[in-house]
Write a protein that binds this DNA or RNA. Structure first.
Lengths: 291, 291
DNA sequence: TAGAACTCCTTATGCCATAAGGTGTTATCC
DNA sequence: GGATAACACCTTATGGCATAAGGAGTTCTA
């Protein structure tokens, strides 16, 4: 039952995000100018603790109580530093993005760069699944997320496509990576939370379905055909071109599924970018996209 | 602060989902065989009321209290019919999918069919944004969602691609449509909830950013270039770099952005599917995918 | 007609965010 | 150097949530 999604007062979040570390309340020590007791905490420390709490228990959203417990104070004490939970979430979100690398090797092609960018983002989301709960509409773009955006923008501009097209591509890339990572993360979390492995889940689900809907195969033949694995004769023939994976027990079923879906989907998406480039360079006889 | 995401006991959800309407508790009337007072409600009625409640207030997740209020009973009465909130959510989720059309015109090409399928799914999500809060991992596939899946499977098999590739494509399509719809829906909801239009939001955000990060343009040149609209000749000088948009009041800024991103992203994705087909039909000299 | 089964209610528990207001600490001004 | 005002942090209260526990009334069956 993951919880959070919205954000708080954007103006206050942005002020906290973009103001330097010398801003009021941002640090415990510093040139104090005001009366009152010394501040025991700082925004940075709170954000750090909140991230740790969210990482430690990603299923249930972070609670101010849990954060406060980590810091040895009451939840109300946090309100001195942060306007509320929503704003704290914004801060956590941006701070976490500082983990992502911002440069890309310009000697590689745009496609290789995009592929590794997407892979890095995906593993970032898998490390911090709670990040995916933060809404994407009306983004409170903090410096670190903006840097991620900047990196991707730098990569896609090398395709030579116009900005309007690139906006669509960037958005599609983000949605794809986020969606895939969310599925993968939730499947992992479900396994640890319920104590039921993916394998167990799927077999029990299948047998249930068989009992409850005996006519499943006739009603949904295409679905069955889609989910049926290829007849894999030995090890690694090239019938499944993308990222074949030997069924060692180390990687559970769903994990393998999402990994493969990621490789295939990303490849197809970038193939589409390439094709869109070719379409533009071709003489106007090339059929326009039949949307 | 949208809330819900997980699901409840899958076995019980599946029993409720797949059992016919004559199953115990599914209907108010029927061949009663047991003592006790008549059932005033039914699972179907509860699910219907819950969907109505969720549609009416999609920001905050549905609460059992709200559903009960609609039905003129207490929240605890619902527990007689439904094991808990998670299972109710599963039922709502599947029931809502009954709205989607399941056939597709086989005379049209796969691409046209996929495009209209995606468009229909997107507008469905926009009608019922709460559906997007239901997790995608360990799906409790009910009959109606399965029918949607079946339709898409039928479409993509007409590309002739192998099932493993198609799984990746299907997954990418879903993630793309879901992500885009979620962004669009949240942006709409934010507008009505905060009473601040997208236009207002973006201008206030821009001016805030200008004050808090005066060096934004130097730090993030690519982002600026990406968000800058193509040089539309007249209308508004380009001194305000962020997201200028001719202000027709009909379609607000973000709405236009997400609509365009949907069209472009979908087109690129399907272009990639097409290109992947061509790659497979080509002689083996065609460069394999450089993942 | 007694009893069992069943529905639905009231009440209680334990989470959660956060509003309200009290108490002790501390820098600054007279 | 002491008064004072600003401030951090606490306790307590409010209202919302899911749901556990148990009680009261209704209706079928033996």
């Amino acid at each position: 039952m993951s919880v959070f999604a919205g954000q708080g007062d954007a103006a206050r979040s942005m002020a906290l995000l973009w103001s330097g570390p010398d801003a009021p309340g941002h640090q415990a020590e510093g040139l104090r100018r005001s009366p009152g007791p010394k501040r025991a905490l700082s925004v940075d420390v709170i954000v750090e603790a909140a991230i740790a709490a969210a990482d430690a228990d990603p299923m249930t959203g972070v609670s101010l109580r849990a954060v406060a417990e980590r810091l040895g104070c009451t939840s109300m004490a946090l309100y001195t530093y942060v306007p509320g939970k929503g704003e704290l979430l914004d801060l956590m979100y941006d701070r976490a993005h500082a983990e992502l690398s911002t440069g890309h090797d310009p000697s590689r092609g745009w496609r290789a760069a995009a592929t590794s960018w997407a892979g890095e983002l995906r593993s970032f989301y898998l490390r911090h699944p709670w990040v995916l709960q933060v809404s994407y509409a009306r983004p409170v773009l903090g410096p670190h997320e903006q840097a991620v955006m900047e990196t991707l923008a730098g990569i896609v501009f090398r395709t030579g496509l116009p900005a309007a097209t690139l906006r669509g591509i960037v958005s599609a890339l983000f949605h794809f990576v986020r969606g895939n990572a969310q599925t993968a993360a939730e499947s992992r979390l479900a396994a640890t939370a319920t104590g039921m492995s993916d394998q167990e889940w799927w077999t029990s689900r299948s047998s249930l379905l068989e009992r409850l809907a005996p006519d499943f195969a006739e009603r949904f033949p295409m679905s069955i055909r889609l989910s049926t694995p290829e007849p894999v004769p030995a090890r690694r023939d090239e019938s499944t071109p993308h990222g074949e994976h030997q069924a060692d027990e180390a990687t559970p079923y769903m994990e393998h599924q999402t990994d493969e879906a990621f490789a295939v989907g990303l490849s197809v998406l970038l193939e589409g970018v390439d094709a869109t480039r070719n379409n533009l360079s071709l003489p106007p006889s090339a059929a326009a996209d039949a949307s």
